[in-house]
């Protein structure tokens, strides 16, 4: 008796989509306006669109360097988290070990740790290792965010793989590690990939560690770099909106391509099936 979608439903849907997308639409429209128009009128569409703001945004600050830094840091974080977490998640879900509940409890607790509670010792640690203003300087603290997230989601995916396959592999004489590498991993690949996307996005969005540890402009990541466009005498909204559009595009592309996977990953940990 699934409800059928009628006209009022589609009107509601359009309003909902419009409201959630409105900030993006408005920011995009602003980025095309000449500066004088931004400060003087609230007209939706400009009569003389220009790309000046985009050129300014790229020239005043090293926007593409920020993006490259973000890609490097998030990529390294994802590789590290997935390789460590897939082993742990496999052992917790499919191998006969004790304290499974305790281990998952520690993982969940770590995911809930407020970053501000660990920032100063982490800062000292990174400073002591001489890793401030480097990629590893962020990858190490990002373990706190990425590893618990990855273990939690991967455990859900590994759990869904039928045990029969594993047992027949065992009968054929495969070692547990071979079973993991040849049977489980290929079957779990979609889940691993989904987890990787979520970890990548989480690392991409991190702000506090990036703000404090990589304080040199040439090592900044996107969130921190973009937030610094405003620290000038007049706020250059044209540049800011243009920069926002540029940095949002990669995320929008990822979301559009992988939306089904992302939804599956996000809901897997919280809903029992």
């Amino acid at each position: 008796m699934r409800k059928k979608a009628g006209l009022p439903f589609y009107i509601f849907l359009s309003i909902f989509i419009f409201v959630t997308m409105f900030p993006f639409i408005w920011v995009f429209l602003t980025s095309l306006k000449p500066p004088s128009e931004i400060f003087s009128s609230f007209a939706w569409f400009t009569t003389e669109p220009s790309l000046n703001s985009y050129i300014n945004a790229i020239q005043t600050r090293p926007l593409f360097l920020y993006m490259w830094n973000s890609i490097a840091v998030s990529g390294l974080t994802t590789i590290l988290a997935i390789s460590v977490a897939s082993l742990a998640a496999y052992a917790v879900t499919r191998l006969p070990i004790k304290f499974k509940g305790t281990i998952l409890g520690i993982v969940l607790a770590a995911a809930m740790f407020p970053q501000i509670a660990i920032i100063s010792p982490i800062f000292n640690l990174i400073q002591g290792l001489g890793l401030r203003n480097s990629y590893m300087g962020l990858v190490i603290p990002y373990i706190t965010i990425s590893l618990p997230l990855a273990i939690w989601i991967l455990a859900t995916f590994f759990k869904k793989i039928p045990y029969e396959l594993e047992e027949s592999a065992k009968l054929d004489g495969a070692t547990p590690f071979q079973t993991f590498r040849k049977i489980i991993f290929p079957l779990a690949a979609p889940g691993v990939f989904t987890t990787a996307i979520l970890v990548f996005i989480a690392a991409w969005n991190e702000f506090l560690f990036a703000l404090t540890i990589n304080s040199d402009d040439s090592w900044r990541t996107i969130p921190v770099g973009l937030s610094l466009y405003q620290s000038q005498f007049t706020i250059p909204w044209g540049d800011i909106t243009a920069a926002t559009v540029i940095v949002t595009i990669p995320i929008v592309i990822i979301v559009l391509i992988f939306q089904r996977r992302i939804v599956a990953g996000l809901t897997s940990g919280s809903v029992k099936e």
């Binding site: 959630t20 996005i201 702000f207 926002t244 949002t248 979301v255």
Partner: peptide
């Protein structure tokens, strides 16, 4: 429409 606000950095 649901995922894009969630996916962009909070700072942005």
């Amino acid at each position: 429409a649901v995922l894009i606000p969630w996916a962009i950095p909070t700072a942005v």
